[in-house]
């Protein structure tokens, strides 16, 4: 019944799951640390060496805080909201190639849970569903700040999804595949896609910021305007889920950016190192995580540099700048591909 393939998959799923959670957890630590460093501070340094166990303490605090559901809230949906947010956040990691192939006993195993042929569409699908958690959570709180936060989140996500999709289409046109594994594999031989798609990358990363509700696009949860936005009424573990989902999203989107535009687990001169097989794969995975961590750092770096947008600026940027730019990029890409394929001769 359980073939080695399936056992391997289960292990991989568990591993990815764990890694995701762990990374997300320590992202919270990293966030505080980076913020501190960029603000000439030290950051958490009490729990463990350099405050390394701070996330654990935070987690414990979250668990032990009082569970509170407002009386006027819609109970079921109030609970469903954070669960959905967490669920959709975790679903994305399935299609990301975490490294090269591993070989055990003659069998070759991919470090990717599944390489479906519509990987990018899958990503878009999951991302587009991701907004429900926030919407439901915000609505069911029965609080006007939450509602405004939810509305902002949904309109923001819908708006930026379009530009993101268009940016991805340029990439897909260039690579000719929707499979993430294939896209990463293509970057093994040549340049990373960022070289061919700088504009696309720029649009994508801006949209990724918006999709993850990170600063400077964190309008759904602005403390100064909306108290806490959609999670105003949330506390303890449910709040934890929301926050956690955000960090998972950040991690996954960093991974996607790395895979799509920065060669994924590939790195320059990887075949000249003399490494083979599993060793190479492990190095690749390490490199991949380095890239991912850089982007996570980048996220934080941006957060502590750029002030928040005003709402109309956000919409203007999305609709009047990014979408036309994405279409322009699409157009240019199309022409270039046409030239390459000899359509214009």
């Amino acid at each position: 019944m359980l073939s080695p393939e399936i056992i391997y998959k289960i292990i991989l799923i568990l591993a990815v799951f764990t890694v995701t959670l762990v990374v997300a957890m320590w992202s919270t630590y990293a966030e505080r640390k980076v913020a501190a460093v960029l603000q000439d501070r030290l950051g958490p340094n009490r729990a463990g060496p350099w405050g390394f166990f701070q996330p654990v303490a935070d987690g414990l605090k979250m668990f032990t805080k009082e569970e509170f559901i407002p009386g006027t809230a819609d109970k079921q949906l109030f609970i469903l909201g954070p669960c959905l947010a967490m669920l959709t956040a975790l679903m994305t990691g399935v299609v990301i190639p975490w490294g090269g192939d591993l070989t055990f006993g003659g069998h070759s195993y991919k470090l990717q849970i599944t390489d479906i042929n519509i990987g990018i569409l899958y990503l878009l699908g999951v991302v587009s569903v991701g907004v429900y958690g926030i919407m439901i959570g915000g609505w069911s709180s029965n609080n006007k700040y939450s509602l405004i936060g939810a509305l902002r989140a949904s309109s923001q996500m819908i708006s930026y999804e379009i530009a993101m999709g268009l940016a991805l289409i340029s990439l897909v046109m260039m690579t000719g595949t929707l499979s993430l594994g294939e896209i990463v594999h293509q970057q093994d031989a040549g340049w990373a896609n960022i070289v061919y798609q700088p504009l696309g990358f720029l649009i994508f990363i801006i949209c990724a910021f918006a999709e993850t509700n990170r600063a400077p696009f964190d309008l759904p949860e602005t403390e100064s305007e909306l108290i806490g936005g959609y999670h105003t009424e949330y506390s303890s573990m449910k709040l934890g889920f929301f926050l956690f989902a955000e960090y998972i999203n950040m991690f996954i989107s960093s991974a996607i950016i790395a895979s799509l535009y920065f060669g994924g687990y590939n790195f320059p001169f990887q075949h000249s190192l003399g490494l083979e097989g599993n060793a190479l794969s492990l190095v690749q995975t390490f490199v991949f995580f380095c890239k991912v961590f850089f982007f996570i750092f980048f996220y934080m770096w941006v957060r502590w540099t750029i002030p928040r947008f005003r709402y109309d600026q956000l919409m203007n940027l999305g609709w009047k700048t990014l979408i036309p730019l994405a279409i322009l990029n699409l157009f240019i890409t199309g022409i270039v591909i046409g030239f390459r394929n000899g359509f214009f001769q």
Partner: peptide, 8 residues
Amino acid sequence: VLFIYVIM
């Protein structure tokens, strides 16, 4: 999403 948006 649009539907829920409108409902909200």
